[in-house]
Design a protein around this nucleic acid. Structure first.
Length: 606
RNA sequence: GCCCAAGUAGCUCAGAGGUAGAGCAACGCCUUGGUAAGGCGUAGGCCGUGGGUUCAAUUCCCACCUUGGGCUCCA
């Protein structure tokens, strides 16, 4: 997933001695040097910036001379040059020199990025490490492999434009990504793993399974859900509604557009305008905005009349459609869209209730996510974004502490994301690992002291005085679209029975024998009467084998084959095929119904 | 928004300065087959959109739209 921000720590410190063992990071960092070495040979005058190892491999940032730039087709050339250099077993030679000496060296070499790194080093650094690989010289604390012969399982992956030091206002450099492993087998496994990820890409599955599409006519980042996708989505939403109802939420609704004043009051126009679609202006000059969030609306519902302490906590839930103006380059399938539906709720409560409410809420979130088949979580605590938020540090600290306390009580790994909160509140993000180990940010829970102030919310305390409620903002799926995409990838399209758009495909062996078709129709109706989604294909002339294959490709969980033999035997036993494994067994219809109904009720993941 | 690349039939892709092709899907006919593709045939395309160059553009150039990989940002 997301790469680290540019990390030049490998270059910025004093040199490190030879390591006790050769780690993958060391190998990859050496591979980055080798790549830079190849690039400098192939593109004389190329300037190199930083080139660390990453989780997936390594990269190096370059500026090529005279407006030349890499294209994808250059990668094979660079890669062969690297292999050629690797064969020569060129030693990685370490040298320690004074800071001044190094500065002169890189200045003479015409490597301004290195000079800059040296200049930015802390004052107490007076000697630095240099590594030479043949003619290539890099500022580097190391360590490295002894010689380039260790670098044989290599692959360059892609080129990308990156901002120097990761800052949008800086010049853009070109980054070449690659990866390296100890041996060929590991590299092949990596390539196979990428292929697996490609096969379960939700954008691909969305087309194959006829779930959703992104027609150009609508616009970037706006999805259309087809009947099957719509059904899965409805099942997801129905269950969510049911659970929310049980957990004491009330259902509200709000419009998609609103006058600008509402977003002035909420602070969205001050802090979030970049993420909003431009306004539409009516005849009288009144400006309306599409809503990027639902909170101001729920706040107005709260404020619609006087509230008593007896009503708190007040929990308002809505599948709210919001629109966010995402930059054109970031839109991505269902996981990053411009129009989405949040399973959004706002809890209004007293400060005294906040702790309990947060703990039970977190438990509720995790329980619900588990029901959708995710079970491997960690939490992230995101704090005040300096300079991009209102409110005092004390208020933020109090809200953040409340969140931290609730998070700690969950006994899950907790990581800190300094400055990752929104403009009105710190938050906990629930991160989940999917079936192939990728992590996704799902739920967010925010403790908000700001908006109740800005909207001047209050309630009447037991003693008759006015008090200020606090707000908890929370979304479990995050957005329905995004969660749908994540589940689709998590399951690789094999939805668990309770979510599968078609649960059983009934395949007649002889599709022109009336008694067989009749038998299949009766079976279908029996299954449907039990609330199961059963289907008999109506494609004429399709042979049994082809129908089975289609059902498998459509990832229908079960296939039941019925034919003349079953009709003649008349014992109500049919053959069941578990699509994902190909396993077959004979089973009596009542038992089949019972089993499937139970599997649905348990929401088991197959 | 920025860097790089790509848009040809529903899908996956080939092609070439002289107005297009395959496989699968669709449709029709034949086949009635017991667990992952039966056979034959038919139809399907403003070659992303708009400009330009040219006798001629889907092919070359420009802009825009959409998509992909990144950066930045985020649910």
């Amino acid at each position: 997933m997301a790469e680290h921000s540019v990390d030049d720590s490998a270059e910025a410190g004093p040199p490190i001695d030879v390591p006790a063992e050769l780690t993958l990071d060391i190998l990859r960092h050496s591979a980055a040097h080798l790549m830079a070495s190849a690039v400098v040979e192939l593109y004389p005058g190329a300037q190199y910036d930083v080139g660390p190892a990453t989780d997936e491999g390594f990269f190096y940032n370059f500026r090529l001379p005279e407006h030349t730039h890499f294209v994808e087709d250059d990668l094979p050339r660079i890669e062969s040059k690297m292999k050629e250099l690797a064969k020569r077993r060129i030693p990685f030679e370490r040298e320690v020199m004074s800071r001044d000496q190094a500065r002169h060296l890189f200045s003479d070499l015409g490597q301004p990025f290195k000079v800059d790194i040296i200049d930015r080093m802390p004052d107490d650094v007076d000697s630095v490490g240099i590594y030479r690989t043949g003619n290539f010289v890099d500022l580097c604390r190391g360590p490295h492999v002894p010689h380039s012969g260790h670098l044989r399982a290599l692959k360059l992956l892609r080129v990308a434009g990156v901002y120097w030091k990761g800052d949008e206002s800086n010049e853009q450099l070109q980054r070449v990504y690659g990866t390296a492993f100890f041996d060929r087998e590991q590299l092949d496994a990596f390539i196979a793993q990428r292929e697996q990820a490609r096969l379960r890409d939700h954008r691909r599955l969305g087309v194959e399974l006829d779930l959703f599409s992104f027609p150009e006519e609508i616009g970037s980042g706006l999805a259309l859900f087809h009947p099957k996708g719509g059904l899965v989505r409805k099942l997801m939403e129905d269950y969510s509604r049911q659970r929310h109802e049980e957990a004491g939420y009330e259902f509200v609704n709000s419009p998609h557009i609103t006058k600008e004043d509402l977003f002035k009051t909420s602070g969205h126009l001050q802090w979030y305008a970049d993420g909003m679609f431009p306004p539409m202006e009516l005849d009288g000059g009144t400006r309306y905005y599409l809503k990027p969030m639902n909170c101001p609306f729920h706040i107005l519902i709260y404020a619609s009349r006087q509230r008593s302490y007896r009503e708190l906590p007040l929990r308002m839930f809505e599948f709210g459609s919001v629109y966010r103006y995402e930059k054109s380059g970031v839109v991505h399938g269902l996981t990053r869209v411009r129009g989405m539906t949040q399973d959004d709720a706002h809890i209004f409560c007293s400060k005294a209730q906040m702790g309990d409410e947060l703990r039970s809420l977190l438990q509720f979130v995790l329980d619900l996510l588990r029901d959708y088949g995710l079970s491997d979580f960690f939490l992230e605590l995101q704090t005040k974004p300096e300079g991009k938020a209102f409110g005092t540090d004390e208020e933020w600290a109090e809200a953040t502490d409340a969140l931290r306390a609730a998070a700690v009580a969950m006994d899950l790994p907790l990581v800190l994301d300094e400055g990752g909160g929104t403009f009105y509140a710190p938050k906990i993000s629930v991160q989940a690992r999917d079936a192939i180990g990728r992590t996704w940010q799902l739920s967010t829970i925010q403790v908000d002291f700001m908006l109740p102030q800005r909207f001047d919310l209050h309630y009447i305390e037991a003693d008759g005085t006015q008090a200020r409620p606090i707000m908890i903002h929370r979304a479990l799926f995050g957005s329905v679209e995004r969660f749908f995409g994540i589940l689709l990838e998590h399951y690789a399209g094999h939805f668990p029975l309770w979510l599968a758009p078609v649960q059983v495909e009934i395949v007649p062996v002889q599709d022109d024998a009336p008694e067989v078709l009749q038998y299949a129709a009766v079976l279908r109706d029996t299954l449907r009467a039990a609330g199961l989604r059963a289907n008999v294909g109506d494609k004429p002339g399709a042979r049994m084998q082809a129908r089975i294959r289609d059902a498998v490709k459509q990832k229908v969980p079960y296939v039941v084959v019925v034919g003349r033999n079953d009709v003649e035997r008349g014992d109500g036993v049919v053959n069941l095929r578990v699509t994902q494994t190909g396993a077959q067994e004979d089973v009596a219809v009542p038992e089949l119904v019972q089993r499937m109904v139970r599997e649905v009720a348990e929401r088991s993941s197959g």
